[in-house]
Design a protein around this nucleic acid. Structure first.
Length: 724
DNA sequence: CGAAAGGCTCTTTTT
DNA sequence: GAGCCTTTCG
C-alpha cells in the first residue's frame, strides 16, 4: 500500500484513523500537508470513498491548488469533484446555489476590505455620527468581530457596554441594511449566511450533511467561531471530522481566529482521537532549537517536544546594521554572496518582515543591485485603483444594485458628475428607498427631471451602463472587458495620469486573468471572474518558476518553506509590533509570529535588526527585539556577539563590515555612460539613461526602461550594456 | 465641475 | 510617508 509506506508511525495513524473525529496537532515541518493529502488519497484509493463525498478546507487558494496537484500525483489522475477550497470560496459556492432560501440574491457581489470601509463610512453618516470621532476602520473591525461571533445587530446592541459599542451597533444595523440593498455580502457574511442557511433550513443542511462523509480542515488554529460552527454543521451527521493545526502557529487572532476552537473540539467530540506530529523534517537542529527557545517563553501554551534527525546545521546569524537601508543592503549582499559561493540560489532565499511598509526599502535595494526578487503583495494587485475601477464596472453589470461600485465609477473617467450631484443623487435615492441605479432609471423615465444639464450627464451614464449590461449577456468575458474599456474611455483616462503606462499594464494583466474565464457562458464567466478576483490572496499568485528572492510578510509566509530565511526588523516596536507591547496575549502572538518565521527555514536563518529606523517620516532608535534575547549564544554565529538587552552597535557593526568583503567590492566598472545613452538591462530590457550621479565608490544610474518605467541602478551591479 | 494644493490623520498582520 | 479630505482657484 504505497500511500502508507512513506509515512512515519504518527503520520500513518493520522491517515488511517478515518472513523470518527480526529485532532492532529502538527508542529512546523512535521509533514502536515502530506498527512492531509495522503489521508484523502487513502480515503479515495483504499477505502473507496467517492471524492464527491469529501470536503477539504484550506487557508489559502494556493494551498488548495497545491493540495490538488499533490493529490493528483498520489491518486494518479483526476480527483473528481472533491470539494476543496477556502472557507470563503466554499461558502460563496453554497450561497450562489442555495442562498435564495434565506433571501440571498444569487447575483450577490462580494465586498472586500476597501468596499467594506466605504460602506461603513456611509453607514456612519446615515446614522448621524461624526466619522472623525469614530474611525471607520475601528467600527468595521467591531462589526467583523460581532459577525465572527454570529451576533446580529440587535444581539450586538443588547450586549453593548460602552458608548463605542452602542455607536458601532447602530452603524452595524445600517451597514447590514445597505449591504442587503446592494445585494452584497462582505467576507464575514459569506460564512455567517451559510450558518444561518443551515440553521433555518433543515432540508438543505441534510443535503450537505449526507453528501459530506469526510470533512478535513487545515490550519485549524486560525479558524474563528463561525467557521467552527460551519464545520460542526457540515460534519454533523458523519462526525468524520479531521482537523489539523498547531496552536503555536496561531497568528490570526486579530481576524478573530479563536484558539479555543481546539479546546472546544476536544469537548464537543470527546471520542476524538488526538495525534501529535512532533518529528520535524524541514529544519536543522539549530534552527529547530532556536525556534523552540523563542516559543517556549510563551506562558499560555502546552509544551511540545519537537525533534529532528536532520543535521546540526549552521549557527543562526544575528546582525545589527545602522539604518534600514543598510539592513536591506546587508540582505542583498549576503544573498549575492551565497549565490556566488554556490551555497544557495536566489529562489532559495526569502526575506520576511512584520509590516508591508518594510518591503519598500528592501525593494529599492534589490532594484539598485539588479537582483531579481518577487514581492508578495505591496499594493495588492486587485486593490489598485485602475484595476478596481474596471472591476467596479463589471460588478455593476452583474449587479446594478451594487452601490459602492456604482458610486466609485459614476464619474470615472470624469463625465461631468461632480461631488454635489452624487450626494444629491444618493439623498434622492435614499428618500425613495431605492438603490442609486434605480434612482437613475427613475430620473431617465421622467423628461422633466432628465432635462437639466447635470441630469443629462446622469442619464448618459445610465444609458452607457444599460448598453453594457445588455452586452454582458452575450459577450464572453474578454470581449466584455474590452468593450467596457472602449466605451468608457478608461484607456485614455489612465494613460493621461502619472504612471499611466504602468497602470495600463495592470489593466492588461487583468485582461490576461480574464482570459481564463473566456470559455464560460456569458453571465457565468462574469460571476466566476468577480468571485475569483475578490477571494484570491497574494500568496496565491506566488509563481514558482522564476529564480528570484521572495519578499513576504511573516503572516503570508505561514505554510511555506525556504532553505534560507532572513527576518528583518527584529526590533522592539517592529517585531514585536508596538501595538502589542502593552498586552500579554498579543505579545504571545507576536512571539508565535517570530516562531513561524524561524521555522520556515530549512538551512540558514538570519535575524537582522537596525539601530535606527525611520518610521512615518521621523527617525527612531529601536532596541533589539526581546525575542533575540531568548536565543542562547551557543546557537548564534560568532559565539554570542549578541548578549541581550544592550544594543551592540560596535560588535554587530563588525559582522556587518565583514560581510561585504566576500562580495566583489563595488567599483564603478561598467560602460561609460552619459544621459541620453541607450542601454540594455538583463531584466528590464531596453531603456534610456536619464541621469548619472556619483555614489560612494560607484555611480547611480537613473534609467527609463520601455514598458517598465524609471529605475535607479548602481552601475557596477546592474549589468548594463550600452546599445549603439 | 474639476484640477491642484494644502492640511490632516494614522499607520499590523488578510480571507 | 501616504492616503484621504477639504479648500481654493480657474
Amino acid at each position: 500500500m504505497d500511500i502508507l509506506t512513506e509515512l512515519n508511525t504518527a503520520q500513518r495513524e493520522a491517515v488511517e484513523s478515518i472513523q470518527g473525529p480526529v485532532l492532529i496537532i502538527a508542529g512546523p515541518g512535521s509533514g502536515k500537508t502530506r498527512v492531509i493529502t495522503h489521508r484523502i488519497a487513502y480515503l479515495i484509493k483504499v477505502v473507496g470513498v467517492s471524492p464527491h463525498r469529501i470536503l477539504a478546507v484550506t487557508f489559502t487558494n494556493k494551498a488548495a491548488r497545491e493540495m490538488e496537484a499533490r493529490l493528483q500525483r498520489l491518486v494518479g489522475g483526476s480527483v473528481g469533484d472533491l470539494t476543496l477550497g477556502t472557507f470563503h470560496a466554499i461558502c460563496a459556492r453554497i450561497l450562489r446555489r442555495d442562498g435564495k432560501a434565506i433571501g440571498v440574491d444569487p447575483r450577490f457581489v462580494i465586498y472586500d476590505d476597501e468596499d467594506q470601509i466605504s460602506l461603513v463610512k456611509r453607514s456612519i453618516q446615515d446614522v448621524g455620527v461624526d466619522p472623525k470621532q469614530y474611525a471607520p476602520r475601528a467600527i468595521a473591525s467591531a462589526i467583523s468581530s460581532a459577525k465572527s461571533r454570529m451576533l446580529a445587530p440587535k444581539d450586538y446592541l443588547s450586549h453593548g457596554r460602552s458608548y463605542f459599542e452602542e455607536v458601532s451597533g447602530r452603524v452595524y444595523e445600517r451597514y447590514q441594511q445597505l449591504l442587503t440593498e446592494s445585494s452584497a455580502l462582505d467576507f464575514d457574511d459569506l460564512l455567517v449566511k451559510v450558518v444561518q442557511l443551515f440553521r433555518s433550513n433543515a432540508e438543505i443542511l441534510a443535503r450537505y450533511q449526507n453528501r459530506y462523509l469526510h470533512v478535513l480542515v487545515d490550519e485549524f488554529q486560525d479558524t474563528n467561531l463561525v467557521q467552527y460552527e460551519l464545520i460542526k454543521q457540515l460534519g454533523g451527521k458523519s462526525r468524520n471530522i479531521c482537523v489539523v493545526g498547531d496552536p503555536d502557529q496561531s497568528i490570526y487572532s486579530w481576524r478573530f481566529a479563536d484558539l479555543r476552537n481546539i479546546l472546544s473540539f476536544e469537548k464537543d467530540y470527546p471520542e476524538a482521537k488526538v495525534v501529535l506530529l512532533e518529528q520535524n523534517y524541514r529544519s536543522t537542529k539549530r534552527i529547530l532549537e532556536t525556534a523552540s527557545r523563542i516559543i517556549s517563553a510563551n506562558q499560555q501554551r502546552k509544551p511540545k517536544e519537537l525533534w529532528t534527525k536532520n543535521e546540526t546545521g549552521e549557527p543562526i546569524t544575528v546582525v545589527e546594521t545602522y539604518t534600514e537601508q543598510e539592513e536591506a543592503q546587508f540582505v542583498v549582499n549576503e544573498i549575492e554572496r551565497l549565490v556566488a559561493s554556490g551555497e544557495a540560489k536566489r529562489g532559495d532565499c526569502a526575506v520576511m518582515y512584520r509590516t508591508n511598509a518594510q518591503s519598500r526599502v528592501l525593494e529599492e535595494a534589490f532594484i539598485r543591485y539588479g537582483v531579481p526578487y518577487k514581492l508578495v503583495a505591496g499594493t495588492r494587485f486587485y486593490e489598485r485603483r485602475e484595476v478596481k475601477d474596471i472591476i467596479a464596472y463589471l460588478r455593476c453589470l452583474q449587479n446594478p444594485n451594487d452601490n459602492i461600485s456604482l458610486l466609485r465609477i459614476v464619474n470615472v473617467p470624469v463625465r461631468g458628475i461632480g461631488q454635489r450631484t452624487v450626494t444629491e443623487l444618493s439623498a434622492w435615492a435614499k428618500s425613495r428607498g431605492v438603490p442609486e441605479y434605480q434612482a437613475l432609471q427613475l430620473i431617465a423615465a421622467q423628461p422633466e427631471l432628465a432635462g437639466s444639464r447635470v441630469n443629462k450627464a446622469l442619464v448618459g451614464f445610465l444609458n452607457l451602463m444599460e448598453e453594457l449590461r445588455a452586452k454582458s449577456q452575450e459577450l464572453d468575458l474578454v470581449e466584455l472587458l474590452d468593450l467596457v474599456v472602449k466605451r468608457t474611455g478608461c484607456q485614455e483616462h489612465i494613460m493621461s495620469q502619472p504612471d499611466g503606462e504602468d497602470r495600463w499594464e495592470n489593466v492588461l494583466e487583468l485582461r490576461t486573468v480574464a482570459q481564463e474565464y473566456k470559455n464560460l457562458k456569458p453571465p457565468e464567466g462574469l460571476t466566476a471572474f468577480l468571485e475569483g478576483v475578490t477571494l484570491v490572496s497574494d500568496v496565491d499568485e506566488l509563481a514558482e518558476k522564476v529564480d528570484a528572492v521572495v519578499l513576504i510578510t511573516l503572516h503570508q509566509a505561514k505554510g511555506l518553506e525556504f532553505p534560507v530565511v532572513f527576518i528583518v526588523g527584529m526590533e522592539e516596536g517592529i517585531l514585536p509590533h508596538f501595538k502589542s507591547l502593552g498586552d500579554s496575549e498579543q505579545m504571545e502572538e507576536e512571539r508565535r509570529l517570530c516562531y513561524v518565521g524561524v521555522t520556515r527555514a530549512q538551512k540558514k536563518v538570519y535575524l537582522v535588526h537596525c539601530f535606527r529606523r525611520s518610521l512615518m517620516g521621523s527617525s527612531k532608535v529601536n532596541k533589539p527585539s526581546r525575542f533575540l534575547a531568548d536565543i542562547p549564544s551557543y546557537l548564534i554565529a560568532g559565539g554570542g556577539l549578541w548578549s541581550g538587552e544592550e544594543s551592540q552597535v560596535a560588535s554587530a557593526a563588525y559582522s556587518w563590515n565583514k560581510a561585504p568583503e566576500a562580495v566583489s567590492v563595488p567599483q564603478a566598472t561598467g560602460p561609460e555612460l552619459k544621459a541620453g545613452d541607450r542601454v540594455r538591462h538583463p531584466q528590464f530590457g531596453d531603456g534610456v539613461v536619464v541621469s548619472l550621479q556619483p555614489a560612494k565608490d560607484d555611480k547611480e544610474v537613473v534609467a527609463a526602461f520601455n514598458g517598465i518605467g524609471v529605475k535607479k541602478l548602481l552601475l557596477s551591479y546592474a549589468r548594463l550594456e550600452k546599445v549603439e
